[in-house]
Simulated assay, not measured.
Amino acid sequence: MRMTPQQREGRLLLAPLVAFLLVFLSFPALVDIVYSLSDVTFQTMRAPEIVGLRNFGAVLADPEFWAACWFSLRFGVLTAVIECALGLGLAIFLSPIVSRHGWTMAILMLPMMVAPSMVGLMYRLVLHEFAGPLPYYMTLWFGTSPAFLDANNAFWTLVVVEVLQWTPFAFLLFHVAYISIPSEIREAAAMDRAKVWKILWRIELPMMRATIAIALGIRFIDGFRVFDNVFALTGAGAGGSTMSLSIYIYHSFFKGGQIGAAVAASALLFFASLAVLYGAAILKTHLERRRIAA
């Protein structure tokens, strides 16, 4: 079957991307596969000994791995849901203001402009039990202050920090989706005397379902693989209370010298993220088809 001119043009445009992936990603991926199936240390990186799936078995049998998975799963789900809920509410509530004064968008996007590691260091200083200004003033005004970074409170502190930084990302996605809804649809609903909440629930939110699904998927993946701000703020935490899966891989690789096990854990993280992204893509396609059919 002969290709059409459009198909040839599409393949020609994709060729540079395919070449980039083959050149810059295929070799590291191949090395990771070899290391994940090998008994390898920093001394034997050039001559790894193939041991099959033993590294995967050791990782899956490690209780710390499952504790890190549970932390990352809770963290990813909570931060994704809270960020998307806040971002959606802000996008709807602030849409008239942002539409009239475009410069307000730059202010709202400021938290995203700071590197996550710098955010972690900043909050580590602000929340430090002995030197932090927030615990000092809370003790001064209320007589007591919680230990924000101890084993009991560190998880929720990290959730709040993550939400404060990345809610603007969700807000940006939802704002674009919200203003792209044709005004004629809202005007027709208003002429039918539909109330504001009914327009939101029956018209606007269904038209934004694909964007909501994508935002949830992206933020969950980003939260699940979190490293920068957690490492800068608490590290693995007291007793490993804040050890995410990425920090578990870091400790296994650099501190434990278990390169094969660390690469095997990173491969499991990659496949988990890929599965979530694939599921989000399928859900988006399904929602788009339902919207078109409706």
Rank of each mutant, 00 (worst) to 15 (best):
Y136W: 15
R290S: 07
I179L: 12
I97C: 00
R54W: 10
E204N: 07
L274F: 12
Q43L: 14
L205R: 02
V31I: 15
L13K: 13
A85Y: 01
S117E: 00
G240L: 09
W201N: 08
M191H: 09
S266Q: 00
A190K: 07
L108K: 00
V81T: 06
A115P: 04
P146T: 09
Y137I: 11
R193K: 10
A15Q: 09
G132I: 01
A58G: 03
L125G: 06
A58D: 15
R100C: 00
R219G: 06
L277T: 13
P146F: 10
A293P: 06
A232I: 09
P206N: 05
M3H: 14
M112P: 00
T234D: 09
H175Y: 15
S26A: 15
F174N: 03
S72N: 10
W197N: 05
T144V: 13
L25N: 13
E204R: 10
V18D: 05
F220I: 01
L245S: 09
Q258C: 03
A232C: 08
M113G: 06
S246N: 12
G87V: 07
A293Y: 07
F142V: 09
R219H: 02
L205Y: 00
A236L: 01
R291C: 04
L25Q: 13
A232Q: 12
M138T: 08
M191L: 15
V161S: 08
R74N: 13
P116H: 02
